[in-house]
Amino acid sequence: MKKINTRKIKQIVSQLCIEANMNLRKDILNALKKALKVERNKRAKRILREIIDNARIAKTERLPICQDTGVAVVYCEIGQDVSIVGSEFEKAVNEGVREGYRKGNLRKSVVSSPIERENTRTNTPAVIHTRIVPGNKLRITVCPKGFGSENKSDIRMFEPTATTKDIKDFVLDVVRNCGAEACPPLVLGIGIGGTFEKAAGLAKLSLLRPIGKRNPKKHIGRLERELLGDINRLNIGPMGLGGKTTALAVNILEFPTHIAGLPVAVCVSCHATRSAKKVL
């Protein structure tokens, strides 16, 4: 049994919160640069340049890429041959988030009760997803999620006889409804199948897949490609001011579902789609 102390977990989570918020993912940065090359709309090009510039400034001046440093979504894949020692696991993750958001001067955006809305002033609790996997490693991924885009996410429970066209129309509607508020160019995570919450979970999870990598399942890879093409013909563009760069990627994950249903969840993310990971 490999032992991992919760002190270490706290420290890693703290570092990852800062890292994710200040260093734009390489794959996103590359996708933005590629978009700048193919974009023809002058205003869109100018905004893309600003966004790329912003990432450079954030990195060199150690500032958050975006002021909405999000809710910390933390994915933990725990090898079944790992033994976690020290304090409580989730407490350690939350302490890591608290420390990272304090040390990194990140914004504390979490309110304790969605109804009463008192800021917890620590950006905790984090949203923690834990999975037990084979092996003796612990993989932690921190994904700060901003709410300008999160608020535009949507889910629909389709009939099992719905067609790919129905699914596409739904996704396009979600994107149209985003306008500029979700800070396009977007990254779209889509979960198809499973149950209500499984589809939503897959949608968010798929945001972690590097931009440009297709789902290896042929029919899903094709759907991703087609949707990306359709979305980029909507002329929403960076900041909603027109252009062909409305989305950088469409990432889809599917899961078996019930004979009576076809859940589709769309998690909307922005050009500041952030994540950082570490394997212990």
């Binding site: 912003n54 001046e61 890429i65 504390k108 500029a180 900041m239 922005c270």
Partner: peptide, 29 residues
């Protein structure tokens, strides 16, 4: 007027001074 969403680091460089003038208890708000 609109500013570029998600360009918070770039815009930070354009702010020379900042002070809280009301509702301090609201934190970032």
């Amino acid at each position: 007027l609109i500013a570029t969403g998600g360009a918070g680091a770039l815009l930070s460089g354009k702010v020379k001074r900042a002070s809280i003038v009301a509702f301090r208890d609201l934190g970032p708000e």
